[in-house]
């Protein structure tokens, strides 16, 4: 289960991402080994989402490299990375509101050609989220926020990714839904999918992860075993709302 640090699936080396003249990510190093669940936590505006955008080519990288399976993929467009087994659940879920739930899931499998496998995987997603099955022919815009998050995760799984990037999956959800979403993340991880989880909810994220990175003002300030970070007094004070 633990990561194989020798051949990380994803590795960021001195990654820098800038918006105009403002450096949002200032040369961070980060790796995710095969099979690992790694979280990147930090306050609002720390540069977590920008890091993801740099990885997936949504925001131009101004310095450093992104390696996926050992290969330099810096600046490669997102659609090419998806074809190589990387899937992302974007911030705010990004479901296609005008498409039906089935069509959303079919979009997740856009890069695949095996019709039977796709059908089977749609049923697997429905088994995981029965609520989606009830509404399979409804447009995704009619779903609640939590249901949309389920759909977004299910959709990302449809590409049978080797690496799943999750951007703030708990954002804007009711506590019960957050619980359900994290159970799902653990289940997905249990199937052997490597996950990089971006979260503001540091406690939950560290509880489910193997390792964690803490980001502040565009830099990684702390990294290590998730359980250790969970008990780190600085983390407890800054992110977990517990006095040191």
């Amino acid at each position: 289960m633990a990561g194989d640090a020798a051949t990380p699936l994803l590795a960021l080396e001195r990654l820098e991402v800038a918006y105009g003249g403002i450096q949002a990510v200032r040369g961070i190093d980060l790796f995710v080994g095969k099979g690992e669940l790694v979280c990147l936590i930090g306050a609002n505006g720390a540069g977590k989402t920008t890091t993801l955008k740099g990885i997936t080519g949504l925001q131009p990288v101004s310095g450093g490299t992104v390696r996926y399976e050992g290969e330099d993929v810096t600046g490669a467009p997102a659609f090419q990375l998806v074809r190589r087994g990387l899937a992302m659940v974007p911030e705010g879920r990004g479901v296609f509101g005008g498409l039906t739930i089935e069509e959303n899931l079919a979009m997740g499998a856009y890069t695949r050609k095996d019709r039977d496998g796709i059908r089977a995987d749609i049923e697997r997603v429905f088994a995981l989220f029965p609520r989606l099955k009830e509404r399979r022919r409804q447009t995704a815009g009619t779903l609640s926020g939590g249901e949309q998050q389920m759909l977004a995760i299910g959709r990302a799984m449809m590409s049978r990714p080797r690496l799943l990037l999750l951007d703030e999956p708990s954002m804007g959800l009711a506590p019960l839904m957050v619980q359900k979403v994290f159970e799902t993340i653990l289940a997905v991880s249990g199937e052997g999918v490597t996950i990089l989880l971006i979260e503001q909810n540091a406690k939950l994220a560290l509880e489910v992860s193997h390792r964690g990175y803490v980001m502040e003002s565009g830099e990684v300030t702390l990294a290590g075993d998730a359980k250790e970070l969970l008990h780190d007094p600085k983390i407890r004070a800054a992110y977990l709302g517990v006095g040191a």
């Binding site: 997102a78 990004g94 498409l99």
Partner: peptide
């Protein structure tokens, strides 16, 4: 068709369509 769904998805959200592997 798959192309048609990709077209509709792109019209709704081109960035996310790209994240699904669609060459926008």
């Amino acid at each position: 068709t798959k192309l048609g769904i990709a077209m509709r998805a792109t019209s709704q959200n081109p960035v996310v369509a790209g994240l699904m592997g669609v060459d926008i």
